[in-house]
């Protein structure tokens, strides 16, 4: 027997092929997620040298980490950078999406490409370019490398996420509901408030969460745009990675970072999934 009855529309596979494919999927996912689980488990490992398997579990490292002044400062910096970059991305990304989707103008396709490009550019190139630009152009105006330049650096690629989300939503909505709103007597502001914005809200939320997650664990662009005094959480990890006595704390920070990144992505997926049913 080479075929098995399957649901309509799914390819017919032999049992052997199904087993092989399932094992490949499991192996692929394992390569990605087992190391992450090890990091999470090790953050509770009582053994300072991380002997495996853990002989004893403890919450001690989490407490130590929470009391670590450097970690707390870095966490706060990362949150501020993430919020700043997300705010810029939401504003500019939404405006760019409206311009490209709703208006016809010279260079429209080019603008669209230029907005998307930063996500494809190697982070190191963006980083070096921004670093040069900030130091040569902005420093004469008294702006030094610091949190502000990190926010700007992150915004360059966070915009793309919001832009793509909003663009797709606008394309799907079309203009007829806005026409209907105007037809029923709503002025431009009322139409935005009652119709356009509510219909965009989930796309904005999903885009914003993804943008925040991207910013929160970014390291390359951050390295080049953060001044000496500014440390985000990923930078803090990188700087402390090879100090043996910091190892347990690094582990906990890494574990925290995993949780911090997974939650927004999960929520963003839930939200864009829900949006399809409106």
């Amino acid at each position: 027997m080479t075929t098995t009855p399957t649901a309509r529309g799914t390819p017919v596979l032999s049992p052997a092929a199904r087993v092989v494919l399932r094992l490949s999927l499991a192996a692929g996912l394992a390569v990605i997620y087992v190391p992450l689980l090890v990091v999470l488990a090790n953050s509770f490992n009582a053994d300072r040298a991380f002997g495996w398997p853990p002989t004893r579990l403890t919450g001690q490292w989490w407490a130590v980490t929470w009391d670590n002044e450097g970690v707390r400062t870095a966490l706060w910096t990362s949150v501020k950078a993430g919020l700043g970059a997300t705010a810029i991305a939401l504003t500019l990304g939404t405006m760019a999406a409206f311009a490209v989707q709703r208006y016809r103008f010279f260079g429209r396709e080019t603008v669209s490409l230029l907005v998307i490009l930063p996500i494809a550019l190697p982070g190191i190139v963006t980083g070096i370019a921004l670093n040069n630009a900030f130091r040569t152009v902005l420093s004469p105006f008294g702006i030094q490398l610091g949190l502000f330049t990190v926010v700007v650096g992150h915004a360059t690629f966070c915009i793309v996420i919001v832009y793509n989300n909003v663009l797709a939503r606008l394309r799907r909505l079309g203009t007829s509901v806005e026409d209907a709103s105007a037809d029923l007597g709503a002025d431009t502001f009322q139409t935005f408030r009652y119709v356009t914005f509510p219909l965009l809200r989930s796309a904005l939320l999903a885009g914003g969460l993804l943008a925040f997650a991207l910013s929160f664990d970014e390291i390359i662009v951050t390295t080049f745009t953060a001044g000496a005094g500014v440390q985000t959480l990923p930078i803090w990890i990188f700087n402390n990675l090879f100090r043996p006595n910091q190892a347990p704390v690094v582990n906990v920070v890494a574990a925290a970072l995993i949780v911090f990144s997974v939650v927004p992505i999960y929520l963003a997926q839930r939200i864009s999934g829900d949006a399809r049913t409106i």
Partner: peptide
């Protein structure tokens, strides 16, 4: 005048109901 300043209402071909 803009559509919202006119005393006429439209039933659209695709109905254009507000889905939310």
């Amino acid at each position: 005048l803009a559509p919202f300043e006119r005393d006429a209402n439209t039933v659209f071909q695709d109905y254009a109901l507000f889905p939310h």
